[in-house]
Amino acid sequence: DTFTFTLDGIEVRLHGASEELIKTIEELLKRDIRWEELEKWIREWEK
């Protein structure tokens, strides 16, 4: 599955994202998160 969203005018596609990761990103997007914050968060998630 591919999860697609737009952040700061950039279309982002995550391939093979888990349901948990998708739900977490959706929550972060509701908080009007900035790209830099999401990028940092995703790097931490990957560890």
Rank of each mutant, 00 (worst) to 15 (best):
D1A: 08
D1N: 12
D1T: 07
D1P: 12
T2V: 13
T2M: 07
T2F: 08
T2A: 06
T2H: 09
T2G: 10
F3Q: 00
F3V: 02
F3Y: 14
F3H: 02
T4H: 12
T4W: 13
T4I: 15
T4G: 09
T4C: 08
F5S: 02
F5K: 03
T6L: 14
T6G: 02
T6S: 04
T6W: 15
L7A: 04
L7D: 02
L7K: 02
L7N: 02
L7E: 02
L7S: 03
D8I: 02
D8E: 08
D8V: 01
G9L: 05
G9A: 03
G9H: 01
G9N: 03
G9Y: 04
I10V: 14
I10E: 06
I10W: 04
E11P: 02
E11Q: 05
E11Y: 03
E11M: 05
V12T: 02
V12K: 01
V12C: 07
V12E: 01
V12D: 00
R13Q: 15
R13M: 14
R13S: 15
R13D: 09
R13W: 08
L14W: 04
L14K: 00
L14H: 00
L14M: 11
L14R: 00
L14N: 00
H15K: 09
H15I: 15
G16V: 06
G16E: 05
G16W: 06
G16I: 05
G16Y: 06
G16A: 08
A17Y: 06
A17V: 13
A17N: 03
S18N: 10
S18P: 08
S18I: 03
E19V: 14
E19I: 14
E19W: 08
E19P: 15
E19T: 14
E19L: 14
E20W: 11
E20A: 12
E20Y: 12
E20K: 09
E20R: 07
L21M: 14
L21E: 07
L21N: 04
L21H: 05
L21A: 10
L21C: 06
L21S: 05
I22S: 01
I22R: 07
I22C: 04
I22T: 05
I22Y: 02
K23H: 12
K23L: 11
K23C: 04
T24I: 13
T24E: 14
T24K: 15
T24Q: 14
I25E: 00
I25S: 00
I25G: 00
I25L: 08
I25N: 00
I25T: 01
E26I: 13
E26Q: 14
E26A: 07
E27K: 11
E27P: 01
E27C: 10
E27V: 11
E27L: 11
E27W: 06
L28K: 06
L28Y: 06
L28H: 06
L29T: 02
L29I: 13
L29D: 01
L29H: 01
K30T: 11
R31A: 13
R31Y: 08
R31D: 09
R31I: 07
R31Q: 13
R31G: 12
R31F: 10
R31V: 09
R31N: 14
R31M: 11
R31P: 02
D32M: 06
D32C: 06
D32Q: 08
D32P: 07
I33S: 04
I33W: 06
R34W: 03
R34C: 04
R34N: 10
R34H: 12
R34T: 14
R34I: 08
W35Y: 13
W35F: 14
W35I: 11
W35E: 01
W35M: 08
E36W: 09
E36P: 14
E36V: 14
E36R: 07
E36Q: 12
E36D: 14
E37L: 06
E37K: 04
E37C: 04
E37G: 05
E37D: 12
E37V: 08
L38Y: 10
L38M: 13
L38Q: 00
L38I: 04
L38V: 05
L38P: 00
L38H: 00
L38A: 02
L38N: 00
E39G: 05
E39A: 09
E39W: 14
E39V: 11
E39M: 15
E39N: 09
E39K: 10
K40G: 11
K40L: 11
K40P: 11
K40W: 09
K40N: 09
W41A: 14
W41C: 08
W41Q: 10
W41E: 07
W41I: 15
I42C: 06
I42S: 01
I42P: 00
R43P: 06
R43M: 11
R43N: 13
R43G: 13
R43Q: 14
R43F: 10
E44N: 11
E44T: 04
E44Q: 11
E44F: 09
W45R: 03
W45P: 01
W45H: 10
W45C: 10
W45I: 08
W45G: 04
W45A: 05
E46R: 05
E46P: 10
E46Q: 14
K47L: 12
K47D: 12
K47V: 13
K47F: 09
K47C: 12
